[in-house]
Design a protein around this nucleic acid. Sequence first.
DNA 1: ATGCGGACCTGTTAGC
DNA 2: TGCTAACAGGTCCGCA
Length: 271
Amino acid sequence: MPELPEVETTRRGIAPHLVGQRVIQVIVRDGRLRWPVPEHLSAQLPGCTIKDVTRRGKYLLLHTTMGTAIMHLGMSGSLSITPAVQPPRRHQHVDIVLAEGHCLRLTDPRRFGCVLWTQDDPGRQPLLARLGPEPLTQEFSAEVLYRAGQRRHAGIKSLLLDSHVVAGVGNIYANEALFMAGIYPVRAARRIAFPRYQRLAEAVVSVLNAAIRAGGTTLRDFVGGDGRPGYFKQSLLVYARTGAPCLACGAAIRQLRQGQRSSFYCARCQR
DNA sequence: ATGCGGACCTGTTAGC
DNA sequence: TGCTAACAGGTCCGCA
C-alpha cells in the first residue's frame, strides 16, 4: 500500500496526536509481523513520552524519551488514531495506548509490516543504516542515480526500486517517474546517458512532492492518519492505466512484468 | 558486487 | 454461483 508519499501523509496525520503524549501501554494482539514484535517493546515503551515522529524512506520513527519505535507498513499496513476503548477489528494487530485515552492502532492484513524498538541511535539500526539517500533532500541527485546505475545491467526501474540506492520509491512512483522522464522501464541502467538521469531525478522529486500534496495515492483502501483517502490516483499518468490512451501522445499504455512487478509505460514516449 | 527467484501473508478480482 | 489462479502499494534473504 504505502510508498513514501503515503507514509509521509500518515506521519503528518498522526504526529499532532502523538507528540508530547505519554505511552501507558502497548497491546500486541498478533505479533507475527514481518519480524515478531519484540517483547521489550511492550516492556520499555510504556512510561515514555513521544518527542517526535519522523520518517526515513518508508519507515516511521516514534522518538521517545527512552528509545525509538520503528514502524513499517509493508504492503497493506495503515495507522490510525483511535479511541482506546474502541473494540479492535480484524487485522488491527498493535495498539500503542496513550495517557489521554486514545491510541495509535496498526492495521495490517498481510502482516508484511513491522514494529521494532531500539534504544540506540536509530540511524544505526541495520534496516535504516543501509538505506540510500532521502529523495526529497539535498543528498539525492542525478549523480547518485547515475553512479549506482553504471554497474547495473538490469532495467532502470529496478534501480529506482532499490532502497539502498534511493529510499522510499515504490512501484507506483517508479513507473510514474520513468514516464515523466521518457525512459523505458526495462532499459539497462548503464545504457542511459547522464542528461536523462537528470530528467529522471527531477521526475522522482516532482512526482513524490505532487503525491504528498494530494495526500498520497489511494488505489483501494489507503487512508492517511486522519482517516482520509489520498487523491493522487486521479493524477497517475501510467500506473494501472493499461490500454488507456497515453496522456501525452494517445498511444495505448502497455503493461509488462519485471521481476514479479508490473510496469506500465508508453511505448512511443518512453525509450 | 549484481541479479534473480522465493519467501513472508491475506484479500480481491478475473476467468472458467 | 462457485472454485481456482493470479495479482496487489514491500523488501529481505539465499543462491547463482
